[in-house]
Design a protein around this nucleic acid. Structure first.
Lengths: 239, 239
DNA sequence: TATTGTGAACCGGTTCACAGCG
DNA sequence: CGCTGTGAACCGGTTCACAATA
């Protein structure tokens, strides 16, 4: 039943048996969301066609994505919503909790701290950091705001896994370096700069300004046919 | 074979018929940022190698990306920072201004409204919308908060180009539909759902929750925690 | 029969080697 | 001689056709 990344086999997961396309990981997140939604409607089974339509991708894509990790469906019938949901949670590492810290308590940092879905998905806000003494000492969503000088200690003590970087562009790379040195292995970078880190650390950019500028390109480009991303057609299997 | 580069200064009518990879567009944004930064340091010329290093990509990639649009460099020497900057701005459609509206005045919507770089890049906040009567009537960063019922009228009157969707997941698709019907052609979707739109509308997702979950996957994957009994091969994989 | 699972073809983007030019 | 510009090879991800099977 429990199929782990790629072929199960014995021994610990260790190395990557198969390289998972980054795009696939992103779609798995989408599938999981859809399954959660669908489950709330009391639906217990779903086909790859139906799932694909809601995710705005092809049914082939859905099946291929899932196939990287095992066989979760039933031929003839589709997938059991509850069990596939569980599987995806396991695959995505969402069946455990993660300790997160927010570095940079500006408007965005504060907005994130208050975001209710964080805790819901077991991303536990454990600490915040800021240079401004004015902000240090406050408690937001149950977490303390520390001075950045204390970052190393606090990150180590609280075993922070992931840092949410919401500092100004200039401060992003230094902050990332410090977080990494203190043991963080995941960085969600909201700053509008490229942040680099050693290979064992994963950096995910969340760059709305860049998104805005990509939009600008496409609108400016006027009649150019849609490039990527835009669904445009949600065709399933050709009849 | 025939490649009609959209060269020719930063003229407006530069809609080329070449398919630009979405990833390329994203990198152009990065290059432009780097050039702006570099220019502030008084540097006037830069090579593809140097640019590529700061953007964390290969030099081949930089040259190929630029080649989609023309030849902006000087062989032997590199690129003139100022002029390449100008070119990229033109290509990305950043030499004109765009009218934007924020739909959903929660914490995130408000944080975005106060973001100073918006105006700096000529994304002009013209209106905000919310269902909450409590919020309607306020003025944030010089823009009025309207009831969502008025969305169609206001979007049309103010010629809004881009909608920033900062509403809850359930409200995202309906809000997008209304914005599109009123003439918006670009949507920056912050809600954690797939939003679809007709082909002439471009949707860019900015999904930090998804980013967090992708991080979770990678950390989970690399993690070989198993408090003990981890068969050899403890090395992290290279790039 | 309906729908999943998958090897193989296909396509697009990245990498490369080198031609072109200052 | 150095660095850009680009046709071509390469590679990874998507698409597809079909075999497997409940």
């Amino acid at each position: 039943m429990i199929k782990r990344p790629a072929k199960g086999a014995s021994g610990a997961g260790a190395h990557d048996e198969r390289r998972i396309p980054n795009a696939t990981v992103g779609r798995l997140v989408t599938y999981l969301r859809i399954l959660d939604r669908v489950r709330q409607d009391g639906i217990e089974r779903i086909s790859s066609a139906e799932l694909s339509e809601r995710a705005a991708v092809s049914a082939f894509q859905v099946r291929k994505d899932l196939a990287y990790f095992g066989s979760f469906g039933t031929r003839g019938a589709g997938y059991a919503v509850a069990s596939l949901s569980k599987e995806l949670e396991g695959i995505l590492g969402l069946s455990r909790s993660w300790n997160v810290a927010i570095v940079g308590v500006g408007r965005l940092g504060e907005a994130l701290a208050h975001y209710p879905h964080l805790e819901r998905y077991r991303f536990l806000l454990r600490a915040l950091f800021d240079v401004d003494p004015e902000k240090v000492g406050r408690t937001i969503s149950g977490a303390h705001v520390h001075p950045v000088d204390r970052l190393a200690d606090v990150v180590r003590d609280l075993r922070i896994d992931i840092a949410l970087l919401t500092v100004p562009a200039d401060a992003a790379q230094p902050a990332a370096d410090r977080a990494v040195a203190a043991g963080v292995t995941g960085i969600l970078n909201f700053a509008p700069v490229v942040v680099t880190a050693p290979p064992h650390v994963h950096v995910e950019p969340v760059d709305f300004l860049a998104g805005l500028k990509r939009l600008s390109f496409h609108l400016h480009d006027a009649d150019a046919p849609a490039v990527d991303v835009v669904p445009g057609d949600a065709r399933a299997e050709p009849a």
